[in-house]
Amino acid sequence: MAVYLHEEDLPEGVLAPGPIAVDTETMGLITPRDRLCLVQLSDGGGDEHLVRFGPGSRYDAPNLKAVLADPARVKLYHFARFDLAAIEHYMGITAAPVFCTKIASKLVRTYTDRHGLKDLVRELLGKELSKQQQSSDWGGAELSEPQREYAASDVRYLHAMQTILVERLAREGRTEMAQAAFDYLPHRARLDLAGWADKDIFSHE
């Protein structure tokens, strides 16, 4: 297992076919203000690839964009809503189709309100994640080893968790409901970018 850091684009041919796990790191939580600094990917084979973008980047990353925009390749996320918005705003592409482990968890783990990645990895896989670097500076000149490991761990377990969650969705009869939610996520991300991040347009209000 290895973690590879790439500057401004993903090398061609480093990912195996099939679903890819995707995550992002930004300078903060307000997408138009807080620039996209890092895109993490894994094909589930044991390696993770980190693509870093510097200040003033034009996000001209043809290999990465081709992978993320490939309609035949499912992208696995945890809280896809945020990552989809960041990728669309900065890279100009829709990184779909989607499987979101957080939404799947909320649909099948109704016995708990703990749906964070750390909680999910612990329960489903018996692994412990460190979140120490979650709020660190992702826009610095160098990424520390703890930052690289944190970023890689965010995509390391998504394939294994997807397998378990797919089984649980089928067991509870919620596969179709989950797929409809996943299909809606790119539109939800666009609503966030357009100014409706804190509004439920389906509510009575």
Rank of each mutant, 00 (worst) to 15 (best):
L10I: 11
L50T: 11
G173H: 05
Y90W: 15
D9L: 12
D9F: 13
Y90L: 04
D23L: 13
D70H: 03
L68S: 04
I93N: 03
E123R: 14
T26I: 09
S135Q: 12
L68I: 05
D60I: 05
E145Y: 00
D183Q: 11
P186M: 00
A180H: 01
P71K: 06
L143F: 06
A180T: 09
P97Q: 05
G195T: 14
A86Q: 13
G116A: 12
G195C: 09
A189M: 09
I103C: 01
R174D: 01
R168Y: 10
G92I: 03
H49T: 08
V108G: 04
T112K: 02
F99E: 08
P186R: 04
Q162S: 05
H49W: 13
G140K: 05
Y157W: 14
R33H: 14
V67M: 01
R156Q: 13
A85I: 09
L29Y: 15
L158T: 01
D83P: 05
G45H: 10
S135C: 05
R174I: 02
M91V: 03
D113V: 08
F53R: 06
L84R: 02
V74C: 08
V74F: 03
F79Y: 15
L41I: 12
A85F: 05
L68K: 04
A189V: 08
H159G: 14
A85N: 07
L29T: 15
D137Q: 01
F202C: 11
A160V: 00
A170L: 10
F82Y: 15
H115I: 12
R122F: 13
V3K: 01
A151S: 06
T31G: 00
T110E: 12
R58E: 13
S153R: 03
Q133H: 09
R52P: 04
L84Y: 03
R109G: 03
L76Q: 02
